[in-house]
Amino acid sequence: MTSLASQPPAYPSDIAFTPTVKAWQSRHGSRDAYARMEEEHGWQTRLTPDVARFIEQQTSVFLATVSSEGQPYIQHRGGPAGFLRVLDDHTIAFADFAGNRQYVTAGNLADNPKAHLFLVDYAHRRRIKIWGEARVIDDDPALLAKLMPEGYKARGERVIVMTVRAWDVNCPKHIPQRFDAADVAAALKERDERIEELEAQLAEVKRKPGDAGAIDRR
């Protein structure tokens, strides 16, 4: 006889919407809306091309795991854009760089494969939540080499591979808008170069008063 716990969820969102969560939704008036969401479109289980691009553009993400005793742990993972790799529409992988050698994430995954990725794009105020199972691979140097970002100064120790079970996009509400320092620096550099160009044109006009219309008005 198959236990209820081993049966597949009726909806992908059931990975988060447990009976207790649904009871809270009912109590606070949001259950009907989420029930319609489940019936009409719901959360997706395959990574679409748009979401895959979003994932591979991130330079900073959070990975949540749970110990065998149910203690949650959230660890930051960062690297150049592309350090998170979408291998197919169900699989995300990345090189695990050498760090503080606590190995909490690796230890948790050895006991409990449940994992969650939380990705936030502050500049565009967009966030994506990804549920799945993850595993540590520490005996595949070829895969590790494939996933190491080219030219990035870090030492890869192992690979973490996540199988995606469901994902959801949150609304932008309450996400503060922030910009990457490199993007801000590039925008300021472009501005300064444009100012220099206009100042040079203005200086030229001052030397030739009759050519005032020569200023580039882009």
Results as ranks from 00 to 15, higher is better:
158 R>I: 15
20 T>F: 10
173 K>M: 13
158 R>W: 13
60 S>Q: 04
116 H>P: 00
150 E>W: 01
218 R>P: 01
126 R>T: 11
59 T>V: 13
17 F>G: 01
134 A>Y: 12
31 R>P: 02
56 E>M: 09
48 T>L: 14
171 C>N: 06
26 S>I: 03
23 A>Y: 06
44 Q>G: 09
38 E>R: 10
12 P>F: 05
149 P>T: 11
10 A>F: 10
157 E>P: 02
65 T>P: 11
55 I>T: 08
9 P>Q: 07
136 V>L: 13
134 A>C: 14
149 P>G: 06
73 Y>I: 12
121 D>M: 07
114 K>D: 10
19 P>G: 02
204 E>D: 15
28 H>C: 04
214 A>R: 13
215 I>W: 06
97 F>Y: 11
46 R>D: 15
120 V>W: 03
66 V>Q: 01
20 T>C: 03
189 K>M: 07
140 D>F: 14
66 V>W: 07
215 I>M: 06
5 A>E: 11
15 I>R: 13
24 W>Y: 15
38 E>D: 15
175 I>M: 01
184 V>G: 02
173 K>E: 12
97 F>G: 04
168 D>G: 10
126 R>W: 04
123 A>F: 09
89 D>A: 14
2 T>V: 14
62 F>Y: 09
10 A>I: 12
65 T>F: 08
95 A>N: 04
72 P>N: 03
108 N>S: 01
54 F>R: 01
23 A>D: 05
52 A>D: 11
81 A>W: 12
195 I>L: 13
22 K>C: 07
75 Q>D: 04
163 T>Q: 10
73 Y>G: 08
5 A>Y: 08
48 T>W: 05
78 G>P: 03
202 L>S: 10
13 S>E: 08
6 S>C: 06
28 H>G: 00
200 A>I: 07
119 L>R: 05
140 D>T: 09
127 R>H: 12
74 I>K: 05
200 A>R: 15
210 G>W: 10
60 S>M: 04
29 G>F: 02
98 A>S: 07
55 I>G: 06
199 E>V: 07
36 R>M: 11
34 Y>A: 02
148 M>K: 09
94 F>L: 11
10 A>C: 08
179 F>Q: 01
105 T>C: 13
129 K>G: 15
165 R>V: 04
49 P>E: 03
25 Q>Y: 09
27 R>V: 08
174 H>I: 14
62 F>Q: 06
87 L>S: 06
200 A>H: 10
156 G>H: 05
6 S>L: 13
16 A>I: 08
30 S>H: 03
182 A>P: 00
81 A>D: 12
93 A>G: 09
187 A>K: 08
146 K>L: 15
109 L>I: 01
136 V>P: 00
108 N>V: 05
130 I>H: 11
72 P>K: 01
32 D>E: 11
147 L>E: 01
142 A>H: 07
151 G>F: 10
17 F>H: 14
28 H>W: 15
123 A>L: 09
101 R>F: 09
165 R>D: 14
103 Y>W: 08
105 T>G: 12
64 A>N: 04
18 T>C: 06
5 A>N: 07
88 D>V: 08
10 A>M: 11
93 A>M: 05
5 A>L: 11
218 R>E: 13
160 I>P: 11
123 A>T: 07
9 P>K: 06
33 A>M: 04
15 I>S: 09
67 S>C: 05
114 K>W: 09
138 D>W: 12
84 L>S: 13
